[in-house]
Design a binder for these strands. Structure first.
Lengths: 210, 210
DNA sequence: CGTCAGTTTGAGCGAGCTCAACGTGAGTGG
DNA sequence: CCACTCACGTTGAGCTCGCTCAAACTGACG
């Protein structure tokens, strides 16, 4: 642990809209979010971007660059944020000496793969309402993991970001959030969300999740 | 290389519909496809499955189990197939001794992450026609990688599999394949595909791919 | 106080789904 | 060898969910 700590760089804080890295940048490091949040996105040649992920405190960004040493996404802060930067080459060297570090890092990569495949299922088969319910439950459990409330939280991203991430338009996200509120399952005040009926939300997405 | 070879187990051949592993099975190994092909899928509690991936010769299956030591998908052969099984714990031990093996395995995991994120973009923003064009171009370049023709190939999966993978219905896959054929961009004879106008297919998906 | 990004709401439309029917080919049993 | 079956594939007609377009509202910030 001490040895891992030695290679970590604590960077300056990032403010809203600051980029951690940009698409096609050389890959050097992965980053652990300490506070705040980030989104990753790709720009299609036709202009419009698509959000590929959100990263909350305790989560790791930048694994999209490992394969070909070039970042496939851009990463940008959604609010004031701080991170730990872990230079990848040093992580590799240290992993050769510390079996548990190697094991943990394999697990982290595996978790990213499992997560991405889950989103694949969501995007390929869920209705708009199911996507939004699933998204809110997902954010809830991610906040719970770092000790924050799983029932009341602040969304750091815009409705537009959520829409791009879930393959929906802003309008659909907005309308269905309102609809879930009218049904009494959630309460929405701008970006402040309260999950009032988690079990009913789970029922919407189809039981075997969260 | 010799040392890696020593830990690899060459299993019996698999025939169509044989499972390599099933959802919730304990994770022990990853598998390299030697010949034939596999699909991975999840079963939702509501019954219907969703295909999460196709694996062609030279590709690696099973990384969905690394994180929590349990497979998140099932993997099943689409045709007669053979694989190399690589016990994960031995791969981990050997990776500690061979820096280049560790490095390569990190790259393989990274490539899986990059691939999954690309599918995220496809599912969240492409039209049905773009998805199918993109899928065909993807299969083409994967066959090309192992020395097969990038313009004429056999699809090992059903239209239904493709539909589940791309978030479309069988009917849509069928209709749009026919439409692409009528436009003269591809030729379809059951599962035999020929890509006649690759550049026009690329134009459909939006230029900066393949 | 004006601006502008973000959000909401409504009306209308259309891409892709649903449902239904039929075609086709590989495998199986008589 | 043929008849039968069944999974897979195709095609068409109609419908619906989510998109598009348009307009108005809100709050943060210079």
């Amino acid at each position: 642990m001490q040895q891992l700590d030695d290679i970590v760089e604590r960077n300056r804080p990032y403010k809203k809209a600051d980029h951690l890295y940009r698409q096609h940048d050389e890959f050097r490091s992965i980053f652990a979010v300490r506070s705040g949040s980030f989104k990753t996105y790709v720009l299609s040649s036709s202009g419009s971007g698509r959000v590929t992920g959100f990263y909350l405190p305790g989560e790791i960004i930048g694994m999209d660059g490992i394969a070909d040493r070039t970042h496939a996404n851009s990463a940008v802060a959604l609010e004031h944020a701080s991170i730990c930067e872990i230079p990848f080459s040093q992580l590799e060297s240290l992993s050769l000496k510390l079996p548990s570090l190697q094991h943990n890092f394999f697990s982290i990569l595996g978790a990213e793969i499992t997560k991405d495949q889950k989103i694949h299922t969501i995007l390929s088969s869920y209705s708009a309402e199911q996507r939004i319910a699933s998204f809110l439950l997902g954010v809830s459990s991610r906040y719970a993991r770092v000790g924050l409330s799983p029932t009341r939280f602040h969304l750091p991203m815009t409705r537009g970001d959520i829409g791009e991430y879930l393959g929906l338009t802003v309008e659909t996200v907005s309308k269905l959030s309102t609809a879930l509120q009218k049904k009494g399952l959630i309460s929405v005040d701008n970006r402040e969300i309260a999950l009032l009926e988690k079990n009913e939300l789970r029922a919407i997405v189809g039981a075997d999740e969260f």
